[in-house]
Amino acid sequence: MDAREEVLARIRAALGPRRERVEVPRDYHRQPPEGTDVVALFAERVADYRADVRRVTAACGVADEVGRVVRELGIRSLVVPVGFPDAYLSGVDGDGAGGRDHVELRRDDPPLSTAQLDDSDAVITECAAAVAETGTLVLGRDQGRRALTLVPDRHICVVRAERVVGTVPQLPAVPPPATWVSGPSATSDIELHRVEGVHGPRTLVVLVVGC
C-alpha cells in the first residue's frame, strides 16, 4: 500500500463505519453592535495597531493627501501596482523633471524584480475589503502581486469607506492569493511585548476615503 492509501485506511479504521453527523452552530455575531459607525471603528482599530490613519472625506482629496504622505515620509520611489487608479497619484510629483520633490513611480509592469522592490521606499495600494472590528485590510489579486506590499518598508493603503464591513463574517469572498493585514509587521517574541516592524513594512499608512 502506498502512503496515501495507508493513511486513508488508518483514518477509516479509526473512525469506524458509523459516523456521527456534527452540526456547526453559527449563532455567533455576524453584525457589529447596532449603531456602530463602522468606518470610525475601523479607523480607531487600525490606529490601535500603531498604523498612521488619516481620513479624507471626499474622493477628490485623496490625491492631495497621498502627495502629503509621500512628502512627509520623504518617499523618493513609490511602487504602483497594475490597476491602481492614476487619479490618486496626481498629487505626487511623478512626472516632474527631476526637481527636489521628484518621486519615481515604479509601476509593476513589466514586473519589478525583488531587488527593485527592496530598493523602493514605499508601495501604494487599495484594498479589496476591510474589517472594522479587527482593523484588518484584505488585499487580493486586484491589489497587485503579494511581494509588492511585502518587500518595501512602507505601505500606503487607500481604503474606500464603502469597502469597510463591520465584522469578519461579513467579509466578501476574496479569491486567493489574499493577504489580511492588521497593522504593520510586528512581533511579540521578546517577553511578549509587541514591537512593530520586523520583516514586513514597518510603516503602514491608511487613508480612509469617504464617511
Binding site: 503579494r146 486567493p176 493577504t179 510586528a186 511579540s188
Partner: peptide, 21 residues
C-alpha cells in the same frame, strides 16, 4: 494566541498563481 484582535498577517493561497509567488 497573542491576545490581539487580529494578527498582523494572514496569508491565504491556493496551489500556484502565475506571476505571483
Amino acid at each position: 494566541a497573542t491576545g490581539e484582535r487580529m494578527n498582523p498577517y494572514t496569508s491565504l493561497w491556493r496551489g500556484t498563481t502565475p506571476g505571483d509567488g
